[in-house]
Each structure stands twice: as C-alpha cells, then as structure tokens.
C-alpha cells in the first residue's frame, strides 16, 4: 500500500505529466470545456422550461418526474449509444451530456418557482405587476437559490459523465483512468481518479461559494 502511494506521488511529481497536450493542465482544461459547454447549453434549454412550467403551473407533473427519469437513465449507456449511432464525433457526446443535465435543472427550477409563497405572488399581481414583471421581479429572485442548486447538481453530474469521452477516444480526465487501466498502470489510473475527484469537489465548492452572494439579501435568514 505504501509503495502504491509512493508511485502515485511519483506520477504527480513527474514533470512530463504536467506539460504538453496530454499533460494535466490540458486535460483539466479539456474536461472543463466539455462540462461547461454541455451545462450551459442544457441550462439554456432547461431554465426557460422550468420557469414556464413554474409560472403557468401547467406541466407540473412532467417537471416533478423529469429528474427521476434523468436519474434512472444510465448515463454511460446514453453517451455510448449516441456516439455509436450518430457518427463517432464529439457532437453526439455533447448532445448526450446535455440530455442528461436538462432534467435535474428543469425539476429544480420548477421546485424553486413552486416554493414561492402564494401570498407574495398574489400580492405582486394585486399591486399591478404584469405577468412578466411578476416572473422577473418576484418569482425568479425568490426561486434563485433552488435554481442555482439545480445548476450546481447538473454541473457535477456532467463532470462525472464527461469522463466517458476518454473511453470513446477523446480527452479529459478520464484519459488517465482508462489508459491506466488498459496499460495495467494502477498508479496512473489512481492519479487520474484523484484528479477527477479534486476537480469535481473544487467545482462544487466554487459553485456553492457563488450561491450565497447571488442569493437576495432578504432571503438570507441568518442575518436576522
């Protein structure tokens, strides 16, 4: 065990692992590009749907159950299938990642909207805000913490699933894991796993840190 640990340490301290197109910075960058592009596209699709369902109250059943469906979908299977059916390129991988990130964001956005106090919404309409103004001035700010939580969960999920890109011959942090396993180089695989875990945790923490300053001040109950 101690020996393995030393080997992993050696891997991390080897200079050539940190430079060039296969180096750690490049692979972290590639992985983040996959994840961020897929999450942003998914958010552009999911958030309007969630807001629409939340504002009108129509389609609530769909919004509530979508995340369950998303959870049940075997993500690697979906990515591999998309890749195999439509042309062995990055595009189907992106499509699959987007597909997997949409449900949880729709559900959370809807949940945030549904949690807006009925009286507050009623009063907003009652003092003369139009439907559009109610949405942007009242509902969205109040639902924001949950919407953001949905984006965060989706991001982490996409980061995890994006490792499959390496399995299919592309880059990203899955590269070290799959190469390590294929070459029976356990140290490399473990180093890759550590990197993957660190990147995911760091991203999660960064998004959590963003959550607080982006929450409207009146909703931060702690400053009572």
């Amino acid at each position: 065990m101690g020996e393995l640990f030393a080997e992993i340490l050696r891997w991390f301290t080897t200079g050539e692992h940190w430079s060039g197109p296969d180096g750690v910075p490049a692979q972290v960058g590639t992985h983040l590009v996959y994840s961020v592009v897929a999450t942003v596209i998914a958010a552009l699709i999911a958030l309007p749907i969630g807001l629409l369902i939340g504002h009108t109250g129509r389609g609530a059943f769909l919004a509530i159950n979508l995340s369950g469906f998303g959870r049940a979908l075997p993500s690697f299977g979906v990515v591999i299938l998309a890749f195999q059916l439509s042309g062995l390129s990055l595009v189907p991988i992106y499509l699959a990642l987007v597909l997997l990130a949409v449900p949880v964001m729709v559900t959370n956005t809807y949940a945030g909207m549904a949690a807006v106090d009925h009286d507050v919404r009623d009063a907003a309409r009652g003092v003369g805000l139009t439907g559009w103004q109610v949405l942007w001035q009242v509902e969205v700010p109040l639902a924001f913490p949950l919407i953001l939580a949905g984006v965060r969960i989706a991001t982490i999920q996409v980061v995890a699933t994006a490792t499959i890109a390496a399995y299919l011959g592309f880059g990203g942090l899955g590269r070290y894991v799959f190469d390590g396993l294929a070459q029976r180089d356990l140290a490399q695989a473990l180093a890759g796993a550590v990197l993957l875990a660190v990147v995911a945790i760091a991203l999660d923490q960064a998004l959590r840190a963003l959550q607080k300053p982006l929450t409207p001040r009146g909703l931060r109950r702690s400053n009572r």
Partner: peptide
C-alpha cells in the same frame, strides 16, 4: 387597473427579497 387600486392581504404578502 390594479395600479390604481390598493390591495392588502392577510400575512401582508410582502416581497421577502
């Protein structure tokens, strides 16, 4: 219409944010 009519409800319905 509503901008010309005051409206007060139970629990006040104030905007918490």
């Amino acid at each position: 219409l509503r901008r010309d009519i005051g409206y007060v409800i139970q629990q006040s319905g104030l905007f918490p944010h």
